[in-house]
Simulated scan of single mutants.
Amino acid sequence: MCPNPILFSVSEGCPKAVLTLQPAWAQIFIGETVTLSCEVEGGSAGWRFKQYRGRREEAGCSDQYSSRYGDSCTISKARYNHSGVYWCESASGQEHSNAVTLTVSNKRVILQTPPQPVIEGDSLTLRCRVRDGYTATWIRFYKDNKELQSRAGTERSVDHVSKSNEGSYKCRVWWRTRSSSYDGVSAEVRVSVRGRFILGVWWRM
């Protein structure tokens, strides 16, 4: 059966810039390094990084922990103030990229996801991490506070994402050091799924 197209009007064309993260995780531990790249059709000359933090807009890649090389901004030893919504925009401010939310955490356990939303039909990987490089003895993943089927490893993957995968996710970890053991739960992360845009049509398979 052919998919049913849902037509709608679009007031603007496709974005001319795409902002990505490397590593491609929207949640990182404090002190880690992340690179934001602004890929602009026709070149990034004159484009700038912007950040929305604390209810205000400000220049991104502008402190002593950030350095820009061409179309990339590397944040070394990330701090709390690096958390926020990032995008890149033209000098005139009339053109801008997609927005990416970065969260910097000092919790013992974090759940890492790619930047949201995830495109319907793409793959999705969730990764549960313990700070300071400790190795987890066991890990449990939860969606909307319901435990998912247990699997070995620190990651959960979905090959073809659909709207049914939307929800709030978290993970619980138990790990041991030489002297004691710990039990920790990550903050919840909201996963949202967006339909795939093809030639002015949203196709739902």
Rank of each mutant, 00 (worst) to 15 (best):
V109I: 15
N98R: 10
N98S: 07
G93L: 02
T103N: 12
T125F: 01
N106S: 15
D132C: 00
E89G: 10
V100F: 10
V85A: 10
A99D: 12
V109G: 11
L124F: 12
R108M: 15
P115S: 08
V118L: 11
T125I: 10
S97T: 02
V118A: 07
G93V: 03
C88V: 01
G93M: 04
S90P: 02
G121A: 04
I110R: 00
E95L: 15
A91H: 08
V104P: 05
S123W: 06
I119S: 12
L126D: 08
N106T: 13
V130K: 01
A91L: 10
C128W: 08
T113A: 12
C88Y: 07
Q112K: 12
T103A: 08
C88D: 06
S105R: 10
N106E: 14
V100E: 09
R127Q: 12
S83F: 07
V109T: 15
Q112N: 04
G93P: 07
C88R: 08
R108F: 09
G93T: 08
V85Y: 10
E95F: 13
P117M: 11
S83M: 05
S123C: 02
T113M: 04
S123G: 15
Y86P: 03
L126M: 12
L111T: 02
P117I: 11
Y86K: 10
N98L: 09
S105G: 01
W87D: 07
T101A: 15
T113I: 11
R127P: 01
L111A: 00
E89R: 09
V109E: 14
A99S: 15
A99G: 03
G84K: 11
R129C: 09
C128M: 07
A91M: 06
K107R: 11
G121C: 01
Q112S: 13
L126G: 03
K107G: 10
V100H: 08
P114I: 07
E120V: 02
R129E: 14
Y134C: 04
E95K: 13
R131L: 06
E120G: 00
I110H: 00
S105N: 01
S92T: 12
W87G: 00
D122C: 05
Y134A: 13
R108K: 14
W87A: 09
Q94R: 09
Q116N: 13
E95P: 01
K107A: 12
T125N: 02
S105H: 01
V130T: 07
L111R: 03
T103D: 07
T101K: 15
L111V: 02
Q112C: 08
G133F: 12
V104M: 05
R127Y: 08
V104S: 04
R129A: 13
I119T: 15
V130D: 04
R131F: 00
S90F: 00
V100T: 08
A91F: 07
R131A: 13
W87V: 12
P117D: 13
K107W: 04
